[in-house]
Design a protein around this nucleic acid. Sequence first.
DNA 1: CGAGGTGTTGAAAGTGCTCAAATGGCGTGG
DNA 2: CCACGCCATTTGAGCACTTTCAACACCTCG
Lengths: 264, 264
Amino acid sequence: MEPTLDLHQSKGIAPAQRATLGGEGVPALLRTLPLMNGLPDTVKLAFAAHCQLVPVKRGDVIFAGGDKARNLYIINRGWVKIARETLDGSEAVLDVFCDGQLFGEQAVFSEGHVYTATATAVDDTVLLVLPLPLFLTHLQKEPALALGLLRTLAGRQRLRDMELESRTLKNAPQRIGCFLLRLCPLVQPAGEVVIHLPYDKTLLAGQMGMQPETFSRALSRLKSDLALGIKGSSITVSDMRALRQYACGGCSGTYPCQELRAGS
Amino acid sequence: MEPTLDLHQSKGIAPAQRATLGGEGVPALLRTLPLMNGLPDTVKLAFAAHCQLVPVKRGDVIFAGGDKARNLYIINRGWVKIARETLDGSEAVLDVFCDGQLFGEQAVFSEGHVYTATATAVDDTVLLVLPLPLFLTHLQKEPALALGLLRTLAGRQRLRDMELESRTLKNAPQRIGCFLLRLCPLVQPAGEVVIHLPYDKTLLAGQMGMQPETFSRALSRLKSDLALGIKGSSITVSDMRALRQYACGGCSGTYPCQELRAGS
DNA sequence: CGAGGTGTTGAAAGTGCTCAAATGGCGTGG
DNA sequence: CCACGCCATTTGAGCACTTTCAACACCTCG
């Protein structure tokens, strides 16, 4: 088990990657992030002045559940898994985030500002690291920031609701089908659609609450039922309508799966 | 299937139940609610002036998923189930709320302000009904309200995370054990603890994502494994330590189950 | 080439679900 | 007060799905 990274003294921070006020070093992320929408420029600049771009490597633990929280994180590039682990080594994957998404915000409201889950880079990743105290200060003063965070949390909540529904009502092949739908572009080209699985199948399995073996078998079942083409992590869907019906026939229907994506 | 109540024209609102500015009709709820913490009295009074106390009966549908949202709701007394239903009649229970808890807030951030799940009274219930537009107006202007809602949503999120972990890592008897722990007072008397199930076992089963039959069998397994006393909806636990170990041995441990309760 | 990680496949064992039927409590109407 | 019917709960039997354990194929990297 690798020790949690202490990003405050991370040796990985090259000076050129320090955010500066105006230059190319300032993450465009901060300006375009939905979370920061409507925030006065002065606040964005204050954030920019105090945040850092930090690279982490595949497998690195960014923080662990129970750690005292020092930072919030925004993914500049890469993939991060949020999971809770038990003593006996099994884990429950709560989220898998990618570019532009915020994580660590659980600590804002937890007792004693500790993280409530563990964040691990599942690929080489560049993080924008925002000091928690700074964020807390502005959260009190800037309604726009509170509203942005509300929007973010509300989006998460919707995804969780859907996941809970999925786990309750669907079997493994259907859950996978639903996941595939959410990977599709909203406006599909006519004819075949090619879906690229964003990370390894073991993690996909974990995210959907099943074992890797189950995932493998369920996917091949999906393949034979819907005549999918599967080549490594590329999946070709010839009949989207059939996929939708297969995966979401048992959904609540309030929210077609394709409308639901992780918001930032 | 009963039609959704239209609480705007509900015949159930007796004049005496209309909230007034200063009198005994004003729900003390509004003053003490954590959600409203730190809110200026003027805003609380504005809310009080425009909200209504509305009784609903067991089984009434308060709103349905997909409905255009008119109101937020706070439970004055009673129990409300939040669930998503499929066309074929099965449902996934997302939450079961009681006194002092807010629901319907999903609509604040959903596309077009629609509810994303269905709310049903599972017992005779009195609701405090707050017009959504009024709430939205103040949400923009009052940082304290945004922060209160953030706290509420963050608490929900934690419960969802735990539920997801529970579904992923635990079997039926353990999930029930975990639920029982959360019903216990935090400081327990030495010796036996008597737990009262708050509503019927079918709903409990649904809330934990299992069938009533499975719940029944799992509970009796728990009974024989831990020497519980079960009489109707009263459960006597003689060995709390054993229950904790049984139910939460496989938890992530970041959050002992007993610390987690639904916040308002 | 060998090692390790990733993914697939097979067989056996659980675990929970479905369907069916019995039990028991409770309120209503007689 | 009792009989009845309704509903929640329990119990049984069989089945479907998922997990577990084991073995193997495949790929990449050193």
